[in-house]
Nucleic acid binder design. Structure first.
Length: 431
RNA sequence: GUGGGUGUGGCCUAAUGGUUAAGGCACCUGGUUGUGGCCCAGGAGAUUGUGGGUUCGAAUCCCAUCACUCACCCCA
């Protein structure tokens, strides 16, 4: 029974799980940069107000899921429950509106929400986040969506399709909301208790209620897509056209309304199996009013967040393997104190030449050391004992072939470097 | 916040209420002078999540608590 356990809803990511993380991060980074997105990192915590205003009082995230506290100076601080509000704050604070617009940004990092954990849901999870700021053209919506799509396709996801909807703008959304409320007023008694609460707090959410009794009501409810203003209508139509042009499958989902207050026009998700009752690996949309809400210049924006843990769960569900992290190129075996000193010198000489090298720790028998070399899947074991030191020749054992050759100690580093070249590359590690 | 399920060495699993809680994987050490993987032998590792209770006796029954897990709410 361990004395200390990790806090509820957090994850230890062990070495054997790292290949997935390396791979997803490295592909995401590659594809983002290929599409002209630049990396920008923002703090893990912000002044509470950034999220309270940005995400919106009344949302579950703000009302009951934030990790908020006062720091030692008494400032209200919140661990970020999502990326967008912080990114927009940074855009404003750093005067990024004076750069060539749009600004295309991506980042990775931990996100915190106080929720009851379940399959595919954690209190600390990691998101890959992408935003385009300063562009109202629906081509920006398309660009962020394509990046999500291309990443999942690259990672081996099958049967991709976007869930797509438009939630209108301050012009047309309120009218639709009144329409929907009026519709529900007539059926109030048939709706479930949760929906009664939703009608007060965030009326659009009644549309994705799962209770059986609400299904008939939902099925006949008016669609927001039929009540968009001409501008939103045109935006939505253009986006759909682009998606069709590029043959990215999508489903218009009239029930897709995302939980955060700031969404305008486009909202989308990508669904996948293998993440428990959760369906979305990716969720995002447009937030044209957010920058102003946070005190900045009017700046349209569109982006998405994608949960890394969920991506990896889906990959595992699909039996997608991640490229392994290379094992050591050379394992140095030594017998006797003088040989140990020589082995130590060689180890560091190899590492200086970018050849990964393990030196056997302790003072054990040859058998035991070779056993370890095998277990660590080293490509070569270099054996140094009294004989080798005396003759100036090391025994170099190819662990896979089980064959052994003699190599002059003076040539050893060069010889290993030659033989190891091309077999190994240490993967890029980004946070 | 609500509801269901589950807690036995690092991992997986066994033990009709009855001796020192058993096995497998993994780990460590050996198997004649200095050669890995297979095999063989040995070793280390558990107050059965925790705290109470019932009982002559509890891993086993009861209560509480904590954790994990699944689902709801909500979300990536």
């Amino acid at each position: 029974m361990p004395q200390y356990q990790r806090p509820t809803g957090t994850l230890d990511i062990l070495p054997e799980e790292q290949p997935y993380w390396y791979h997803v991060r490295s592909r995401a980074r590659h594809l983002a940069e290929l599409a002209g997105f630049e990396r920008m990192d923002v703090p893990i915590f912000e002044t509470t107000e950034v999220f309270a205003r940005g995400v919106g009082a009344g949302t579950d995230i703000v009302d009951k899921e934030m990790y908020s506290f006062e720091d030692k100076g008494g400032s209200p601080i919140t661990l970020r429950p999502e990326f967008t509000a912080g990114i927009v704050r940074a855009y404003i604070e750093n005067g990024m509106h004076v750069r060539s617009q749009p600004v295309k940004l991506y980042t990775f990092g931990p996100i915190f929400r106080y929720e009851r954990p379940q399959a595919g849901r954690y209190r600390q999870h990691t998101q890959f986040n992408v935003e385009i700021l300063g562009e109202q053209d629906p081509i920006a919506d398309l660009e962020v969506m394509l990046l999500a799509w291309d990443l999942y396709a690259d990672l081996g996801f099958r049967d991709l399709a976007f869930q797509l909807n438009s939630t209108g703008c301050p012009q047309c959304k309120p009218q639709y909301v009144s329409l929907l409320k009026a519709y529900y007023d007539e059926r109030y008694a048939q709706a479930c208790d949760d929906c009664h609460r939703r009608l007060e707090r965030s009326p659009l959410r009644v549309l994705d209620c799962k209770s059986k009794q609400c299904q008939p009501i939902i099925a006949a409810a008016p669609h927001i897509a039929d009540h968009l203003c001409p501008e939103c209508e045109a935006h939505f139509a253009a986006l759909r056209q682009y998606l069709e042009l590029l043959e990215r499958r999508y489903t218009i989902n009239h029930l897709l309304v995302r939980g955060l207050d700031y969404y305008t026009k486009t909202v989308f998700e990508v669904w996948a199996a293998g993440i428990g009752a959760q369906s979305a690996v990716c969720g995002g949309g447009r937030y044209d009013g957010l920058a102003e809400l946070l005190g900045g210049p009017p700046t349209p924006g569109v982006g998405f967040g994608s949960g890394m843990e969920r991506i990896i769960l889906v990959m595992q569900e699909l039996d997608v393997e991640a490229p392994p992290i290379p094992s050591p190129a050379v394992f140095l075996v030594h017998l006797g104190a003088p040989a140990k000193r020589k082995a130590l010198e060689l180890t560091y000489a190899l590492r200086t030449e970018d050849v990964s090298a393990w030196i056997s720790h302790g003072d054990r028998g040859l058998r035991s050391q070779l056993r370890e070399a095998g277990k660590r899947a080293a490509h070569y074991a270099v054996i140094l004992g009294e004989n080798e030191l005396a003759s100036g020749v090391a025994s170099v054992r190819d662990m896979e072939a089980g064959e052994q050759v003699d190599v002059q100690l003076s040539d050893l580093v060069t010889w290993l470097k030659e033989h190891v070249r091309g077999r190994l590359s240490v993967p890029n590690t980004s946070r």
